[in-house]
Design a protein around this nucleic acid. Structure first.
Length: 479
RNA sequence: GGCGCUAUCGUCUAAGGGUUAGGACAGGGCCCUCUCAAGGCUCAAAUCGGGGUUCGAAUCCCCGUAGCGCUACCA
């Protein structure tokens, strides 16, 4: 069975590039019947924070793509140190006593740094003696650089890869403080956790040669590797919080009102496509269509809407979210809509009980012109509250000749009628308009303005029944 | 500097030897219509440059150029 892992380090918030890596791992696992392992790579004790761990977990949970196992790398430290010791014992790694201050290899000109002179060749006797004497050292992997050969592998995305041993430096396994480096910890864990497919960002493509060397020296079977193209900001530089702010953070998409499925759909289309022109896809459709081999090799730019009033994100992401918001089964949307209405402070307990049918109907009617969950709070106040303002354009509709008196007359008719439905309201409005020699649209738009304070919204007749008879009559009389 | 990866409309992408180079977002226009959306139709918009190979190249090869990655006792 395939086993994939997502291995974030808790040194910052969950990045959308990380979220996409997680998504592609998840899709690969789900489409091949594999398991998803979440491994928190917290070996850099100096930079780890509790807050960023929480942010990563929050973000991942929000995506609603559950993982099957969870591990903390820091708790596996003993295994990492043991592995380094074993490599030293068999000569595959060696101690490097070069002081840290002398290490910065000057690479700005001339030859690339490969190893510190003399340290590879230190006899084990001298090495053991200096270590026993307490001299600090780092453990490095001994790359077989005397061989003219190299490491080759077939990347699932980037195809054939090859690197000469002579171009791989003797990378560190253990730091002088005794803690494992990323390369060591990650490879030991990938091996011991039985990871079969390592799917990660392209920034690790050249690290893979080191990992293969390590994995094989450790006696593990080599997993398959697949590297994903990177996500770049609108300016073409690697997406980062510093440069791109909320655009790069998963939780800001959540806070902006994205549905998990809308956001996931957007991410899925960055560097991959189903090849059949479909864009709006449910998670199950993504699982069916996903093929790791058809992931692109080109980096993708994440756009930002530039027009004033736009959400500060890729307009396509907003559009895609709107597709899901409008087209998903209403009942699936309801929990999210409830959240949005609660956030706006308009939630009443009866929406969950006696008025549940009404709530469902209102959300269904309202959602067709919304794109983000936060649009409920922005544009639907009059459906939930009586204290709404009157927009200028709506006021203009009320101020047209004869509209206010006609609306007050309409209030009486509706109050006096026994029927109250979209159709009966439409009859009342149209016949009143005809009697008064007015264009029906004048009355219709006036009624919408009176009932909602807005010039835009659902069909005016629908608005009546959503607002309810008593409130509708009251709002019409108040004009 | 060294090693490597990549290159189609503004953006996300389809087409891996033969297509009027397709779709989507964003932009323009039209239709629908009680408004705004949605939806439908439509316009504008691309194969980085130069050499090859071939009857034929966006597609294969080479050279440039550009972008990105790696080159840490960070992950």
């Amino acid at each position: 069975m395939n086993r994939v892992r997502f291995a974030p380090s808790p040194t910052g918030f969950l990045h959308i590039g990380g979220a996409r890596t997680y998504l592609f791992n998840w899709l690969f696992a789900r489409s091949t019947g594999g398991r998803v392992i979440l491994r928190i790579d917290d070996t850099d004790t100096g930079r780890n924070t509790e807050e960023s761990l929480r942010s990563i977990l929050d973000g991942l949970r929000w995506l609603d793509l559950p993982w099957d196992e969870q591990h903390f790398q820091s708790r596996r430290r003993a295994a990492h140190v043991r592995a380094a010791g074993a490599l030293v014992a068999k000569g595959a790694a060696y101690r490097d006593f070069t002081p840290e201050t002398e290490s910065p290899a000057d690479r700005s000109d001339g030859e690339p740094w490969l190893c510190n002179p003399g340290m590879r060749e230190l006899g084990s006797g001298e090495s053991d003696r200096r270590a026993a004497a307490g001299e600090p050292f780092v453990v490095r992997f001994r790359v077989p650089r005397d061989s003219p050969k190299g490491v080759a592998f077939r990347d699932l995305v980037f195809r054939k890869q090859f690197r000469k041993f002579a171009d791989i430096e003797d990378f560190a396994l253990l730091r002088s403080n005794g803690l494992p480096t990323y390369h060591l910890a990650s490879s030991v864990d990938d091996g011991e956790l039985g990871i079969t497919h390592v799917i990660r960002g392209q920034d690790h493509l050249t690290n893979t040669f080191k990992h293969i060397l390590l994995l094989e020296a450790l006696g593990f079977e080599r997993p398959a590797f697949g590297h994903l193209p990177l996500l770049l900001g609108p300016d073409g530089s690697k997406l980062s919080k510093r440069r791109h702010g909320p655009l790069a953070s998963v939780t800001s998409y959540r806070d902006m009102g994205f549905l998990p499925v809308g956001f996931v759909n957007y991410l899925s289309l960055l560097g991959w496509s189903p090849k059949d022109n479909r864009e709006s896809l449910a998670v199950s459709e993504l699982v069916d269509a996903f093929r790791l081999e058809q992931v692109l090799r080109t980096n993708a730019l994440v756009q930002v809407g530039e027009r004033p009033g736009d959400a500060p994100v890729d307009p396509k992401a907003v559009w895609l979210n709107g597709q899901h918001l409008r087209n998903m089964p209403v009942d699936d949307l309801l929990p999210f809509a409830e959240g949005a209405v609660r956030d706006a402070g308009w939630w009443l307990e009866e929406y969950g009980s006696s008025h549940r049918a009404w709530f469902r109907e209102a959300i269904d009617a309202l959602r067709s012109r919304l794109s983000l969950l936060t649009d409920f709070a922005l544009r639907c106040r009059a459906y939930f509250r009586d204290d709404f303002g009157m927009e200028a354009k709506a006021l203009g509709n009320l101020d047209r000749d004869g509209v206010r008196p006609a609306l007050r007359a309409l209030a009486d008719r509706i109050a006096g009628a026994s029927a109250f439905s979209d159709a009966s309201v439409e009859d009342a409005v149209r016949s009143l308009a005809a009697e008064r020699g007015m264009k029906a649209s004048l009355l219709i738009n006036g009624a919408r303005a009176a009932l909602t304070g807005q010039s835009v919204g659902p069909s005016a007749f629908r608005v009546f029944t959503l607002v309810g008879k008593a409130r509708a009559v009251q709002r019409l009389r108040a004009v």
